[in-house]
């Protein structure tokens, strides 16, 4: 075989995909050709380096809050013991919240960035607004969320005596989990304040919490 024929077959040769008789002819040529043998050695060295590369490369930040937020926003997924059975009612309750306008403002989050300020609408791109307006909107949104949440928590406290321990445990577990998600997303927003996905995830978490409280306070008496 000529050198150019052998070099054209080197990749298949190292991959072990040549027919036995062809592989034998390539080996025969390599044994007597230092130039082709060097090419083979370089190829094997490259493949050795590639095989030694670490397969795992950790991301520079925790990507889970973004994944969790997207799943929650798309499907109304709630962690833990509620499982899929609760997804549809929660999503419906969340939709009711949106329709009533209780948290409409909470979807708009203002974040300062240099001299400009930014508002993130529910599913829109960031929109620049005049300085001062965004912070006001953000503060108003959080105040409305807190007001709605406090009122519903008070209603839940008043109803605890009428609810079974199992139900209360499920409600408390999920409230805690949503609180943790809100905390994680808020921390991520501190690191990346202009990320529209994080802002939407935070709004979705707020919505989930209000929907959960509405659902819990509307349950029929059990005890």
């Amino acid at each position: 075989m000529r050198c150019d024929e052998v070099l054209a077959l080197l990749d298949d040769h190292v991959d072990g995909t040549l027919a036995a008789d062809v592989a034998a002819r390539v080996d025969h040529h390599l044994a007597g050709c230092p130039g082709c043998a060097r090419e083979l050695a370089a190829l094997r060295r490259l493949l050795g380096l590639a095989a030694g590369l670490p397969r795992a490369i950790e991301p520079s930040r925790d990507l889970w809050p973004g994944i969790e937020g997207s799943l929650a926003a798309r499907q109304g997924v709630v962690r833990g013991r509620f499982g899929r059975r609760w997804q549809r009612p929660l999503a419906a309750a969340a939709a009711a919240v949106v329709a009533a306008g209780v948290l409409l403002v909470a979807y708009s989050l203002g974040r300062q960035h240099g001299s400009a300020r930014v508002v993130l609408a529910p599913s829109a791109s960031p929109l620049a607004v005049p300085a001062g307006l965004a912070d006001t909107t953000f503060a108003a949104a959080e105040a409305e969320f807190s007001q709605a949440r406090d009122a519903l928590l008070a209603a839940l406290e008043a109803r605890r005596g009428t609810m079974s321990q199992d139900t209360l445990r499920v409600v408390d577990d999920n409230l805690r989990l949503i609180d943790q998600a809100i905390e994680r997303i808020s921390l991520a927003l501190v690191e990346d304040p202009l990320n529209p996905r994080l802002a939407n995830q935070l709004a979705a978490a707020y919505r989930r919490q209000i929907a959960l409280l509405q659902r819990a306070t509307g349950l029929p008496a059990e005890a």
């Binding site: 397969r55 991301p59 889970w64 994944i67 969790e68 899929r84 997804q87």
Partner: peptide, 25 residues
């Protein structure tokens, strides 16, 4: 598979390095 997002996070924590490594390369 039963809808437990907490379990899915557990799977994420155990596999994200390889998935991210693939995507990055």
């Amino acid at each position: 598979q039963a809808g437990d997002l907490e379990a899915f996070e557990e799977l994420y924590r155990g596999t994200v390095g390889r998935v991210h490594g693939l995507c990055l390369r």
